[in-house]
Design a protein around this nucleic acid. Structure first.
Lengths: 113, 113
DNA sequence: TTGACATATGTAGATTGCCGATATATTATA
DNA sequence: TATAATATATCGGCAATCTACATATGTCAA
């Protein structure tokens, strides 16, 4: 990421699950799409993405299958499960609470009682 | 924190510097104020706060002095330096960029082109 | 008077999340 | 034939935070 990487911590799972919400995708594709959808703010590394995908699969949030490609080596597609969808909702709620609290503190200043 | 702790990563520095923006404070006070200003969302642990304060002091973002207290053991007050104020501005800008990108991705969905 | 609680600061060890570096495979193209 | 783009993967390491513990001071109740 361009940003101080430590700002990102924990939200990568949320982002990946979110990308899978509107259709099955393979890893490399997620990296590209995330970069695009975030206006080049997020630049997911393969060393972060692939281990994460394996973890999410183990936890039952996503399932995977291999598909040959004429353009490259075979692609590993991922599909969001019901459990994954539930997890996505939870993480999204958590993010909103976190962002709201941050905003509150940053706006706070001398105005707090 | 109540939230998945990993969501918080990296923003603790920003929060602490922000608290010091409107006046010198001691550690325990920052914990309480942060809890209050965030509606109990952020609950900074002493094991996180005190080492962080020492690091920020080493980096020259804050300075410290000891003050006796009638009500408890002596308090260690911290003051935001000019360098700290500059760092605060940078971290705040970074946070906004990060939050904006997150919002973009989370709103995205099937609508992206 | 001692034991619990609130206030206040601190360290040590463990865990976790992410990254950089590296490796490998396939196809296209220079 | 070598370099780049696409695509997946592992390993070692670092940084940030937490849990648990330790310590010090004052107050209040049993």
């Amino acid at each position: 990421m361009k940003l101080d990487k430590s700002l990102l911590s924990g939200s990568t799972t949320l982002l990946v699950l979110k990308l899978l919400e509107d259709g099955d995708k393979y890893g490399y594709q997620m990296t590209e799409e995330l970069r695009r959808r975030s206006d080049h703010t997020f630049d997911l590394k393969s060393g972060t993405l692939y281990p994460l995908l394996h973890t999410l699969e183990q936890k039952g949030y996503i399932t995977a299958w291999e598909e040959p490609s004429e353009a490259s080596r075979p692609r590993r597609y991922y599909h969001l499960t019901d459990a994954g969808r539930k997890q996505l909702t939870e993480k999204e709620t958590e993010w909103k609470a976190y962002a709201a609290a941050m905003t509150k503190v940053l706006k706070g200043g001398k105005g707090y009682a």
